[in-house]
Amino acid sequence: MSALALRIAGIGAWSPRHGAWPQWRAALRGETADAIDAPRPPATVLPQAERRRAPSTVLLACEAAAQACAMSSLDAANLPCVFACKHGEVAISDDMFATLAADPRALSPTRFHNSVHNAPVGYWTLATQCHAASNALSAWRDTFAAALFEAAALAVADATPVLFAAYDAAASGPLANVMEANNTFALAFVLDPVSSGAGPHLRLRHVADVASASADALALLRVLARADFANAKSATLSFPAGDGRRLDIEVSA
């Protein structure tokens, strides 16, 4: 299967322990000793009223996406977007299911609305006046690899930069227990379908084999933060991508 070659034109990230990508990157490079405490992504791309009401996944996605767009210097209004979330908006869903079990007619329209999987990308396109294609994906434990592959395929097929965002919000409650929803993070890339220019560069290859595929989004961020390819020109990470498959991502400067 042929490889998809792209340049990362912008990176955004958020975690409650590290805040935005510049701080997180410094921590991954060992330049700052201690993590900070940043419970709520600022997500200033959203209008203030939206920001106050928005559920966690919307704030996470919009914060990371806005960072990546700013670094790329590209206008978010023109970027097709591929958003991906493993668990969905678990906190809101938990509340919705509890209401449905107790008194279905009391279901809040806002809760229902915010539980929909493409709510974050919908809010993003509203905030940035983006009329390009927008998508919302899930592939359970392999969401990151599957959605990054789709974003890369879209960028190469349409010869356009694409905004990719992956995010999950920790939650509590019966559903969160089952889903193991205990990580809060967001990551975004602006992917430019070119193999030249300033890096980092990615080459993605889908492989029908699972041998030694255990990388995750954090592993990729670590490589990008350190940009240290140990005397080699590149580093290759293997991500699980569904039963009997993996996604190999070669990162180079």
Binding site: H87, L137, S138, M179, G242, D243, G244
Partner: peptide
């Protein structure tokens, strides 16, 4: 079982039946 409660539940169910090994994911844009 968590596989039942993820949006990708449909993809996982069909994957077991069909046996394809190319890219597999679930789109959920309402």
């Amino acid at each position: 079982q968590p596989e039942l409660h993820t949006l990708h539940s449909l993809g996982l169910f069909l994957d077991r039946l069909v046996g394809a090994r190319g890219p597999c994911m679930t789109v959920s844009t309402a």
